[in-house]
Structure formats: structure tokens, C-alpha cells
Amino acid sequence: MCATCGCGEAGVRVSSPHDHDHNHGHDQDHGHQHVHPQEHAQPRTITLEQKVLAKNDQLAERNRYRLAERHIVAVNLMSSPGAGKTTLLERTIRDLSSDRPIAVIEGDQETLLDADRIRRTGAPVVQVNTGAGCHLDAAMTHDALDALDPAAGSLIFIENVGNLVCPALFDLGESGKVVIISVTEGTDKPLKYPYMFAAADLVVVNKTDLLPYVDFDLAACRRHLAAINPRAEVVAVSATTGDHLGDWYGWLGAWA
């Protein structure tokens, strides 16, 4: 079983739309140091004082170094299911791919549906299916990067599993974390899922074209966000109509 993600029989799968059989390799840094037991029977206390996610963090650092070496910027996109991550990505790829190469890692529990949507934009994409897993981790990202083999200077979007809790804890080796909420989800989302919003570098409020039809208070949402995470920037856009997408592209341009 993988030390980092706990995946085993459930089976993480990394695949691209044209290659559906690449398994999660687990061949990196899973070596175990075997210290042979000495002949002793007295119970004793062993001090460890190590971070629980030390292995994930080491792998994430390795991913980060590998990306920086090739001037690749990776952005980790997180949201609840249905906030519009894939739609925002489709639009972003169409609008920006003439400026720099864009590639995508898609994370979902099952199916290649999102990877197929991205593939139709022409961008290279691999799909990570986490099976029972509720988040991507650094090992999955490592394997996905192997399969994706992005061009130097690329902008990579990592679309995490739709979940506002678990992905917040796992460093993937990304350059920045973006949290997307949609106006149909409710103004108080940042207060309900503070850990996720506290981790964000940018919060994208999506589906602003629906504001006239829903009870969503954008100013109050910004206040909640400022209370949880004063350093996060906020942009309000509609990926469907393209409204204010320039703000999102401006952030990407400054960040990447």
C-alpha cells in the first residue's frame, strides 16, 4: 500500500484519453529502510518527532524542483463538485494557449469525462482516477507529470478532486493554490470550509452570470474570505459568458 495516499486495492489510475492502462507506479521513494531488530525484550520508547505528511511533503518538493527546472508553473485548482473548474479551464485554454503551452492534470474519483473535455480543446491532458481517494497527493502528481511530460515553460493546471476539505492538506508541489466557488453555492461557503479557503492564494467566484437569479451576496462573501484569509486575492468571473475573465488571466500572468 502506498505510504502517502493509502491507496491499494482501490487502485489509483493515471491515464490519458489515448492510453487507458497506465497504472499508478509507486516506484519512487517508497523504499523502506530495514533496520534489523536487535535481541532485546524490554519495552522502550522511541522518539520520532517527524511530520506525519513528511513523505508527501518530500515528494511535493521534488515535484516543485522538477517543475522549476523546466520553468513550468503548476496551479492547483480546488472546489466543490460542480463549481465550474472544467468549464473555466476549457475557456482559459482557448484564450491563453496561443501565449504559452498549457497542459492539464485532471483528478476525479472515476471516469475520463473531464479529460475528454480538455482533450477537445487541444491541450495535453492526463486523468488521475483516485478510486476511493478524496484528494490528489504528491505521488499521484509525480506519476501524472511522468505521463504528461509537459513542454518546458508550460502552464499546468491540476484540477483536484471536487472536495472542499481533504485537498487542502496535501502539497502537490504546485506554485499556487486556487479555490473556485460558484454563486449557486451560498455566500457562507468560506466560513463553512475555512481550511480550504485559508490555503488559497486566489479565490475565483464563478458563475456571476447567475447572480440575478440566486441569493448570493458578493460583498459579504468577500468579507468572509478576508476574515479567513486576508492575503488571498479574489476575482469574480463567469466562465460561461467570459465576464471579467481578464482579472483571472491577469492574476495568472502575474503569478505564472
Binding site: 500500500m1 493509502g6 491507496c7 533496520v35 517527524q50 497527493d137
Partner: peptide, 15 residues
């Protein structure tokens, strides 16, 4: 997965 990481680290060290 966090608990799995703990148990893996502990079992490795317990040898």
C-alpha cells in the same frame, strides 16, 4: 491516508 502515513512510518521504524 494521514493515519496510513503514521502507521507506515511507525512500522518501518519498529523494524
Amino acid at each position: 491516508s494521514i493515519t496510513q502515513s503514521i502507521v507506515d512510518a511507525v512500522c518501518e521504524r519498529a523494524a
